[in-house]
Design a protein around this nucleic acid. Structure first.
Lengths: 330, 330
DNA sequence: TTGAAAGCGCTAACAT
DNA sequence: ATGTTAGCGCTTTCAA
């Protein structure tokens, strides 16, 4: 691999002149520049990325940290962040946090291989985020509440989402409502459940323990939880799945049991995944403002990178998407 | 940010000793190591990633280059590559090639910010791939045929896929078959179309120009192409959409026109996206071995990184997934 | 306008 | 077992 030194030598100029010429500095004469560029071309010269980063102590790239790169779930969010990065002439890389402490994501943040990060990866501890963030390294956390130097939050109002979903059911006349929950240690699930509880309480409705089942946020879990609910005999008139994936599994269990949706039972989900629109019946659900929240997170990150002061907490509202899986109860 | 120098000073040892201690070299005494580690802890020391890379001239990370990070389409492929990277104790980052020459992806390859790459991004030219690849920088191309130093191919047999899909239709008794194509400059589309043509020719069937419409590989395109086909009056008994996204759009157009699938017309897709199973009717399609091909690409990349010699061309077979959108014609 | 040289933070060969 | 030192390839200050 040719280095800038080789280029300078071939062009017959000093190293620094070569550097100036290639970065388009105006103090180099056109003739010299051409000579340098020609030499670079001949040697097939490519600048070494980290030598530059090291010198500049800036990478011009930000990272998006996801628990699992392969999740189809975040595509809109990724798109929005990509847009913002592009318009700021920054590079964006996506890192997986699979592997926790040992993951690519953690290494990149701790070793400062990027200039800042947007984090959506629950398996990274607060401790690591605190260690990584700082005045020179901003982090936007989208999956938790955390504060500290260089650390801000952009979250979606999960409590309001849970509340809205439940209110919707109640307004349609449902009073016996099951809640299929995500993992107990999930912050998202906790918020959604809080919203559910508040709506129930305000309407004077009681939650039944046997109608609170866990589906672990996965399709299979929703399927099993629903089977279990079915086996218990008494059925609620509606069920609130804490995410769409579980609702998809639930719909399958219901179909197998010949329980008609929304005829016999209404269901509502959360997330508005792509499938929600296409499944039978199409799923009424809560849409999170993915594009907006990603875009906001990106913009804030760049403001911090510029040294601007920003608030450290932003909460976005969600929206109810009404489809065909909820029916007025009578 | 504390450097290793600070740590060494605080611990009262030489720079190199600190370095050795922290990388767990056995020649450092336990006591010294503890002293160093303690100093590092106190200073909240984090090693600087690119200083290390620069010195080692190795990054221990590979890149997966995708045209658009936000596409939900590649999740299985990403997962498989992630698995392979992890098991080789390498880091994996995903880079978008949006922006072409100026993209993050191209910068990372050219500036050698990673040790190698797997490319699935048509908007990157062969020229760039040639410039980036070399004996010290392996690239696995999964989206084209290209050869050169450090450059190998892992592709899925699109021609066979197109052939199988068409054969399936023919075996079910269909003889008037439309082909809704992707972009003309798409290599994937070309292969699928070749397979289609071969099957038609072998069966003595003729392609009709008016039944070859372009949908650009997107849902909306499939929708429009289908509308156009409908307007033309005469209908084929089956249509082969060159990808599932277009088929989804097509199904919608058909439904709006009250043309029953598969009652009045059969449809087959290509890719086996997640939706294919859930849409009404569920879509018969061609499944690409995403996990397998990603895994293979990953393994090959690491073999090359190790200096092993590998073949420069691998072609994987596809598989027909029979669902409900194709009916025997009578 | 050009060149010499310092130094970014780290590793590793070599010397002690 | 520990210390000294020479770079990795680049940018940028300072001097010419």
């Amino acid at each position: 691999m040719a280095t800038i030194k080789d280029v300078a030598k071939l062009a017959g100029v000093a190293l620094s002149t070569a550097s100036y010429a290639m970065s388009g500095d105006s103090k180099v004469s056109a003739k010299t520049r051409e000579k340098v560029l020609e030499a670079a071309r001949q040697l097939n010269y490519q600048k070494n990325g980290f030598a530059m980063d090291l010198k500049r102590s800036r990478t011009n790239t930000i990272a998006l940290i996801l628990r699992d790169l392969s999740g189809p779930y975040y595509s809109e969010l990724i798109r929005s962040i990509q847009d913002v990065a592009l318009s700021n002439a920054y590079d964006l890389i996506a890192c997986s946090s699979m592997g926790g402490k040992e993951s690519t994501a953690v290494r990149y943040m701790l070793e400062k291989r990027v200039d800042g990060a947007i984090v959506l990866a629950h398996n990274i501890t607060d401790e690591i985020l605190h260690a990584a963030a700082g005045p020179r390294f901003p982090i936007v956390a989208m999956d938790r509440l955390i504060s500290g130097e260089g650390l801000i939050n952009v979250v979606v109002d999960g409590e309001q989402g849970g509340y809205s979903a439940t209110r919707h059911l109640i307004e349609k006349g449902h009073s016996s409502i099951a809640y299929i929950s995500g993992p107990v240690d999930s912050y998202d699930n906790a918020l959604r459940y809080q919203g559910f509880s508040r709506a129930m309480r305000e309407a004077g409705l009681t939650e039944k323990a046997k109608w609170k089942l866990s589906g672990n946020f996965v399709r299979e879990g929703g399927y099993k939880a629903t089977k279990m609910m079915l086996m218990q005999g008494e059925m609620p008139s509606a069920v609130f799945y804490a995410n769409d994936e579980m609702a998809v599994g639930g719909l399958k269990a219901l179909e197998e049991a010949k329980v008609s949706v929304p005829g016999d039972i209404s269901v509502i989900g959360f997330d508005d995944i792509q499938l929600a629109e296409y499944i039978q019946p199409s799923l009424t659900t809560i849409r999170q403002p993915m594009y907006e929240s990603g875009s906001l997170a990106g913009h804030l990150l760049f403001q911090m990178l510029n040294g601007d002061l920003v608030n450290d907490f932003y909460k976005l509202k969600i929206e109810l998407i009404e489809r065909k899986s909820v029916k007025t109860y009578n």
